[in-house]
Each structure stands twice: as structure tokens, then as C-alpha cells.
Nucleic acid binder design. Structure first.
Length: 760
DNA sequence: TGGAATGATGTTTTT
DNA sequence: CATCATTCCA
């Protein structure tokens, strides 16, 4: 009997049938198991799988959980559960109810790159400066608004929001939001946030639909509840309002997505919404050694905001956490690769037993290089994923245009790729005309007579030809499988031959990537059609599938590889051996997080997540120098290393003396780096004293910045006047924190900032 | 109009 | 150091 696998508290939670419930689950305490068994238990007790809605953090997690439930209750039952990420489940519902919100059935889902590109174009059209209105900044502002269900109109009317935008120097953000929304709608496109936003609109404005789904979902389960935002919270609240069988599972100590609107308050609100709820606390850790569990506890203790709980384990003590100091980022890569090599040979481990976790994607490079040299297979999750590569995006843009020709971003991407003589000036004319008539670019070329846009006959012909081609693809959509149509599009647009003609290694790789995409489509097309959803293998369903892939979803088979990923991406995963690398101040914790206690606490939770991924051993490393923007910078060990209770840590970085390069791999550093180091050795001025007090008259032109001290008033080309709060670093790496009324606090490398002293 | 050359600019984290 | 975007020339 499967329930025997559970401890007392887990069993109570898993056999809870009706009524709201919350599970606070410490790291490694078996919450997935509880969720799995609870769903299986519900089904065994006669609950219809179609009436269970289960929201997970990744699609992969959903797939795995479905598989495990299937083992208990049978595949026939388990496959009918509504299970997936918030985004994929609700996109599916929106795809059914599209008419209510006046979207096309085949609406496109914009990824962040599409959104930013469209926002950039909006900013340009409004005649604003994209140096001030930076697309990524504006985008996150809009995203924040949507996550809190603030419409463009409400945004424009909200006094606080307007005050914020004014003080940040971007008073016209509301206009951008409004226009961005219009253009998305006109393109038949939703961005990630719109999926949640529109789902809320659907449930708010259409009572029949609210009832329909409230009655459909008798049981709702939400995993990783600490990482839900307001829009998600409200969907759950609305859907659960009739049956109130809402089960949320989470761990406040692992909340790491506040930056994208996640709100721990949702956990606290739960008891207001459902005063009668049952609470289960899972505190026994089954994953990690005592050392790891206790070390993690000693870290998270430092946070002020948390729900009290004690995670403990029966597991063996295990080894202390090793800390390694590396001389450079390359040496760090070496150290880790070499350690893995050794550990593997000594203990006959698989590659997949190891993970390298870092704070930012950009850190992966040195580990890749080192692993490659040692011939250790690895896999990078996240970063520049397959679907973000140029050639893939190009082909997919054709697919998107075929499914939904109004899709403006796709249209712009391929209207002249492969080159067909439709250049910038033509596109500009079309953009103006489209804006004038309030229609999409496609409407324009579909009915050119209706919307004259002043093109010459030659251009007109080319445009018409393009429209014909897309119409041709559209006509095949119903008849052909995703794979067949994909193949046809790749061929007839000339993309395949264009890439094939490039025989450079990169060109060959691009060609192979396209083949890879087509193979993926083949697999997709051959999947068993779902009875609920018979059209599963159309091109547009393929598009939904890939638009909402999460970073850890991609799976290139049963491979035995080292995992490289950000700590964020590692959430929910576990590995016997975990390397937490780049443990340096300003990197982890990120320097962006040093301004407030809340931000720092989130970083600390991130560190907690990193540590608790490890089953048998955790190893930390930091580098004293590292290249950043092609600049050599110096780093100090992260404060987080010191925050771990010392009895769990092996500080061999302090006793082992200077850790030069390993002799075995002495030639690893690049020539440029050696050159740089030599320069330091020959020029004491570079690594020498800190100019505390500027000597008068020492101000050689280019060295003026060395005279800047805290408290001064300075002027920056772009940010205008500001006040210097503090100075750190030395000589060429002098860094100032300057507060600009126009832009807030900024960290500037004085060497580049070209600050002018305007007062003391 | 298209391609090459040059120059600015940026690093959290992600659905 | 990359990548991207803009610019400049054919």
C-alpha cells in the first residue's frame, strides 16, 4: 500500500480529502511525494481526474508527477488530470474561451524578447528616448502592473504609480503601457503576464465561465505556493470559491521569485480566505546529510521574515562543506572540473550525480571550458536556450505567422528574411499606414487596396508575393501535421538552403539546429492525440507547447551529464554532489540586492535553496579575480560563507595558502590574462595604495576621478546631478555609489563614468 | 536596399 | 568581451 511510504504528518496531509489545507514543507521533506499520493488517493476514492487541477512550477515536474500517479491509479486515469504550470494550464483554457476576450483562437504567446522588442518600437513611435525609457525597465514596470492586475487605465490614474514614474524620470510610462497593450491585442498576442491577467478578466467578467470552471475543478492543488503572485493568487481564490478544496504547498524559506512579483503574503492571506483550513508541517528532511541540513538552518536563521519551523534529519552526518579559493574564474572552473573528475573516479559516480550552481547565467563559461578539456559531458540549463537561437526564432516566426498572421513581431522578423528586397523604408511606410488605420501589418498586405500605403509597384509585388506565400501555408494548416508543414515551410521559404550554403562550422551548426527543431516536431506530431484535445498535433499546438517550455523542461533523453544551471533553475531538484560557485560579494549576494534588507534576505533564501539541493556533499568556491565585461575585477569571499555555522564548514581556503593554478593545468589562462598579471607585477601603482586624500595638483586630466570623495556633488552626462554616497575599490577600479534624483542610486566605475565635480 | 564596419552598452534571477 | 544597433558606403 503506497501510504506506507509516508511518515505520520505526510500521511495526514496525503489523506486529507475535503476542505482547504496548507502544507508547509521544509526542503527535502517529501512534498512532491505528498502531492502525488494525495492526488492518487483522491482518485482511488472516486474523484474524477478531470475535476482535479494541479499547478506545478515546471512542466517537467507535472509530467513526472503524472507518471508517478499513473503507476498507482493507472495511466488511463492519471492522464486526465489538469496538471501543468499556471501558464500552460490557463493558456489552454484561454485557447478554449478565446472568443470571450476577442482574441483569435491561434493567439501568439510573446516571450520576453518579443515583448521588449515591441515595447521598444512603441517607445520609438511615441517619440521617446530609449536611453531614458529603457525597454527592459519599462517592460518590468508593465509586468509588475499586470501581475497586480492593474490595467493601463488604472495605471494612468493611480496617483502613487504616477508619482513613482515621475520621480524615476519616466512620466510617460502609462502611455507606453497603453499602446503596448493595444499593439499586442492588434497582433493577436499575449505576453506571459497576459495569460494570467486575461484569465482573471475571464473569471471576473463572465459569470457563466466562472461557474463552469468553479464546478469543473473540485480539487485544486498548488505547488510552490510561496512563489505565486497576486494574479495567480486571485485565480486560485476565484476557482476555489465554491468547493474550497484548495491545497497549497510551499516553503517560505524557498521563496526566490519576489523580483517577478511573487508575494509571500499569499501564504499569510490563506488563513484569512479560509479560516477553517488545516495546516500540515513537514519538517523531516529525507534528502541531505545532517551537516547540510544544519548548515542550511544556520543560514536561514539570519532572516527576519520567516515562518518558524525546524528542519531535521535522521540521515548520517556527512562531510563538512568544503570552501575553495580560486585565483581567477578560470581557475575556479578548473578546480570544479577536476574535483568532479576525481570524485567520479574514486567513487564510481555518474555524471548526473553532479551539479554546478551559480547566481548568473554568464558564469557558466569557465566551467564549460574546463569540463570540455577533461572530456566530461555536461548540460547547461537556461541561458541562451535552444529556442532563443536566431535561426530557430526565424523559422518559428514563420510558424507563428502561419498560425496567426497578425503577429507583428513575427512579421517584422521574417518579412525580409531570407532577403526578398523588402527593406527598412518599405517597412517604415507600412508601419505608419498600419498605425493610421489601427490595423495589423498583415491586414495591410492582405487587403492592400483597402489601406493604401504608397509603395512603388516593384515593392508592392514583393509584398504581395510574401502574402501569397503565407496564405499558402495557412491553407495547409488543417491538412498537414506540424512536422510536415514545418518541413515544407523550412524548404519553401529558402531558410534551409540559405543556411546550407554557409559551410562555416557555425553555419553547419545552425543548419543542424533547424534539423533538430524539425525532428522535435516530428516527435511531437507522432504523440498520441489526446481525446479531450484531438487537434494536438497542429502547428499552433506545437507553438503553445514550446512558448511555455520552462528552462528545466528540455530533455535530450536519458543522458548522463553534469548539470550546470542557475540556482533559480535548480529549485525543486536534488543532486548527490553540488558545487555552489562564484561565492563572492557583489555576485552572490548580487550587488543589486544590497540596498534593502528584503532583497538581501531573498538572496539568502537563494543560498538556502542552493545548499539544500545537495544530498551527500556541498562544495563552495570563490574566485579572487574574475573577468566581467572584459574587465578584470577583484572579489571578496561572500558574506554567506561566513554565515554558515563554522562547525559545518571546512575553510581550506584560509589554511591552504594562496591557491595558484593547479600545476597540472598551468597553461589554462589566456595570454591576455598573463599579460595583465605581469603588468600588475611591474607596476605597483596599479595594485598599490588607496588615494584617501587627493593631493592637490595631482589631477592629471584622465585621473580626475580619483579626486572624487563621498559627499561631493557630481554631474553625469545622462543622469545629471547627483550626490556621492560612498567610494570603494582602488585606483582604476574605484567605484562610487551615487544617488541621482533622476535615476536613483547608481554604482559607477569612476574610470568610465566621466563624472564632473560640481560641488562639495 | 544590403552588407560590412564601427560604436555603444550591458549582468541578476524567469514564466 | 560579446552582442547589438546604428551608420556608412557600394
Amino acid at each position: 500500500m503506497y501510504l506506507e511510504d509516508l511518515n505520520e504528518e505526510q500521511r495526514l496531509a496525503a489523506t486529507h480529502i475535503s476542505g482547504p489545507m496548507m502544507v508547509i514543507a521544509g526542503a527535502g521533506s517529501g512534498k512532491t511525494r505528498v502531492l502525488t499520493y494525495r492526488i492518487a488517493h483522491l482518485i482511488e476514492n472516486g474523484v474524477d481526474p478531470f475535476s482535479i487541477l494541479s499547478l506545478t512550477f515546471t512542466n517537467k515536474a507535472a509530467k513526472e508527477m503524472k507518471g508517478r500517479i499513473g503507476k498507482i491509479v493507472g495511466e488511463l486515469e492519471s492522464k486526465n488530470i489538469w496538471m501543468g504550470t499556471f501558464h500552460s494550464v490557463f493558456a489552454r483554457i484561454l485557447r478554449i474561451e478565446y472568443q470571450r476576450i476577442n482574441y483569435p483562437r491561434e493567439f501568439t504567446i510573446y516571450d520576453a524578447a518579443d515583448s521588449k522588442s515591441l515595447i521598444k518600437s512603441v517607445i520609438k513611435d511615441l517619440g521617446l528616448d530609449d536611453k531614458i525609457y529603457k525597454p527592459s525597465t519599462v517592460f518590468s514596470r508593465i509586468s509588475g502592473a499586470k501581475n497586480n492586475l492593474i490595467s493601463p487605465a488604472e495605471y494612468a490614474e493611480d496617483a502613487d504609480i504616477q508619482a513613482e514614474d515621475r520621480s524615476s524620470g519616466r512620466p510617460r510610462t502609462a502611455e507606453i503601457y497603453q499602446s503596448y497593450t493595444t499593439r499586442c491585442f492588434r497582433s493577436g498576442a499575449m505576453d506571459f503576464d497576459d495569460i494570467l491577467y486575461n484569465m482573471n478578466v475571464l473569471l471576473r467578467d463572465h459569470n457563466d465561465l466562472l461557474h463552469k470552471y468553479q464546478h469543473r475543478f473540485h480539487f485544486i492543488l498548488v505547488d510552490e505556493y510561496q512563489d505565486t503572485n497576486f494574479a495567480q493568487y486571485l485565480i486560485i481564490k476565484r476557482l476555489g470559491a465554491v468547493h474550497e478544496n484548495v491545497c497549497v504547498v510551499g516553503d517560505d524559506a524557498q521563496s526566490i521569485y519576489a523580483f517577478r512579483g511573487a508575494n509571500i503574503q499569499n501564504i499569510l492571506n490563506f488563513k484569512n480566505d479560509y479560516p477553517e483550513f488545516s495546516m500540515y508541517k513537514l519538517e523531516q528532511n529525507y534528502r541531505s546529510t545532517k551537516v547540510i541540513v544544519n548548515a542550511a538552518n544556520s543560514v536561514i536563521e539570519k532572516n527576519k521574515d520567516q515562518i518558524q519551523k525546524t528542519v531535521w534529519t535522521h540521515n548520517p552526518d556527512g562531510e563538512r562543506i568544503l570552501v575553495h579559493k580560486a585565483g581567477s574564474d578560470n581557475d575556479e572552473g578548473y578546480f570544479v572540473a577536476h574535483q568532479i573528475f576525481e570524485l567520479k573516479n574514486r567513487n564510481h559516480h555518474f555524471n548526473k550525480d553532479f551539479a554546478i550552481l551559480y547566481r548568473t547565467n554568464a558564469q557558466s563559461r569557465s566551467f564549460e571550458e574546463a569540463l570540455r578539456k577533461l572530456n566530461i559531458p555536461y548540460r547547461i540549463y537556461g541561458g541562451l536556450s535552444f529556442y532563443q537561437r536566431k535561426e530557430i526564432k526565424d523559422l518559428i516566426a514563420y510558424f507563428r505567422l502561419t498560425a496567426n498572421p497578425k503577429d507583428e513581431e513575427a512579421f517584422r522578423r521574417v518579412i525580409n528574411y531570407p532577403a526578398r528586397g523588402i527593406g527598412k523604408s518599405t517597412l517604415d511606410k507600412m508601419t505608419v499606414a498600419a498605425e493610421e488605420h489601427g490595423v495589423s501589418l498583415w491586414d495591410l498586405i492582405e487587403f492592400p487596396a483597402q489601406y493604401p500605403f504608397g509603395l512603388g509597384a516593384a515593392s508592392m509585388n514583393k509584398v504581395a508575393e510574401f502574402a501569397m506565400m503565407i496564405k499558402g501555408f495557412r491553407a495547409m494548416m488543417e491538412k498537414k501535421s506540424a512536422y510536415d508543414l514545418g518541413q515544407h515551410i523550412a524548404n519553401s521559404t529558402g531558410i534551409l538552403s540559405d543556411l546550407y550554403s554557409d559551410r562555416t562550422p557555425e553555419g553547419v551548426a545552425r543548419y543542424e539546429n533547424i534539423q533538430g527543431l524539425l525532428n522535435g516536431m516530428k516527435e511531437f506530431s507522432e504523440l498520441d492525440p489526446d481525446e479531450e484535445n484531438p487537434s494536438i498535433s497542429t502547428l499552433s499546438d506545437f507553438l503553445i507547447d514550446i512558448a511555455l517550455l520552462t528552462d528545466t523542461d528540455q530533455d535530450d533523453g536519458d543522458d548522463d551529464k553534469i548539470s550546470l544551471m542557475t540556482i533559480h533553475a535548480a529549485k525543486g531538484l536534488e543532486f548527490p554532489y553540488v558545487f555552489i560557485v562564484g561565492m563572492e560579494e557583489n555576485l552572490f549576494p548580487s550587488q543589486m540586492a544590497l540596498n534593502s534588507r528584503e532583497d538581501l534576505e531573498e538572496e539568502r533564501r537563494l543560498f538556502y535553496v542552493a545548499l539544500t539541493r545537495a544530498k551527500t556533499r556541498a562544495i563552495m568556491s570563490y574566485a579572487t579575480t574574475r573577468y566581467r565585461w572584459g574587465q578584470l575585477i577583484f572579489g571578496d569571499p561572500s558574506r554567506f560563507i561566513m554565515e554558515v555555522d563554522p562547525s559545518f564548514v571546512d575553510r581550506s581556503d584560509l589554511t591552504g595558502g594562496p591557491s595558484g593554478k593547479s600545476k597540472l593545468f598551468g597553461d589554462f589562462g589566456s595570454d591576455r590574462q598573463k599579460f595583465f598579471k605581469k603588468e600588475i607585477a611591474n607596476n605597483p601603482g596599479i595594485s598599490g595604495k588607496i588615494p584617501v586624500k587627493p593631493e592637490s595638483g595631482s589631477g592629471v586630466d584622465g585621473d580626475d576621478f580619483k579626486n572624487i570623495t563621498a559627499g561631493m556633488e557630481v554631474t553625469h552626462e545622462r543622469f545629471g546631478k547627483g550626490k556621492v554616497l560612498s567610494i570603494e575599490g582602488e585606483n582604476d577600479n574605484l567605484k562610487a555609489t551615487v544617488f541621482f534624483p533622476s535615476a536613483g542610486p547608481k554604482q559607477l566605475l569612476l574610470r568610465f563614468a566621466r563624472l564632473k565635480i560640481s560641488g562639495v
